[in-house]
Design a protein around this nucleic acid. Structure first.
Lengths: 127, 127
DNA sequence: GACATTAAGTTCGCTATCGTAATATACGTT
DNA sequence: AACGTATATTACGATAGCGAACTTAATGTC
């Protein structure tokens, strides 16, 4: 996924952000900080760079004038869609190599680690 | 482990480095770049900071005058030992929460991912 | 043995991230 | 209306990573 992003001129983290916004529509920065577990100041920088390249944009939030809604542009959505396809291909490849039981074990271990280290895995990302 | 490192005044990556050097004795920087998968220039910075704090030191390598052997100091070894204990406690906790089969699945998935993404998991770390 | 090549680390400049703190604006509650 | 809280930005210093250029030393080749 790393090369897939870089091949499209965005960093992996930027690709991730682009994908999220594409999927879940215009959303406030505060939601992104929760979902990605990054500091607001980190988001500001990422958004600046992506907006400058015309991949996303910040619009006023009609419900709260402190807040901004981050939305994707058409070129941004194109990249996000391509990355999503790559991710799905990866998942398929992974499933072809490991059995269902192994995936279940993987999931259980990840959850246990998150639990022990008190990491919130959901990050309130929308389903 | 992140807080365990920071609580002792080192960054997680620094703690990892300290642990490795403590376990595997004075070793050349080139070995560390292989094991950690970082560029030599990255190591230089980390070593500078750790050496400045008196946690490790660079000695000449008698077998190759281009090379330096990185060794740990007593204060560095204390931190490394504490971190090792934390890690072992973590492992034990994890094992108490998941079954052997889940761990096996986790391992299989990690290996499959490394394989698909062409990451070398061994990094030639010593046993 | 002289010369070219390769290897080990360092230096420098750059980017992304963190954590902290300060700020301006707006919201909500009392 | 006032106070406290939340949203996002800005600014700062630090860590961690990269790549390129460089120095010095070892190695290979003719």
């Amino acid at each position: 996924m790393l090369e897939a992003s870089r091949a499209r001129g965005v960093e992996p983290a930027e690709g991730h952000l682009l994908s999220y916004v594409t999927l879940y529509g215009p959303c406030p920065v505060s939601e992104l900080t929760r979902v990605f577990g990054t500091r607001p100041s980190t988001l500001t920088g990422m958004l600046d760079r992506l907006e400058e390249r015309g991949l996303l944009l910040r619009e006023p939030n009609p419900r709260d004038r402190r807040s901004l809604l981050v939305g994707v542009t058409d070129p941004g959505a194109v990249i996000a869609t391509e990355l999503r396809a790559k991710l799905e291909a990866f998942e398929e490849e992974l499933r072809s190599r490991v059995c269902e039981r192994d995936l279940k074990g993987f999931d259980a271990v990840i959850r246990a680690i998150a639990d022990i280290t008190q990491v919130d895995l959901t990050k309130e990302g929308r389903k």
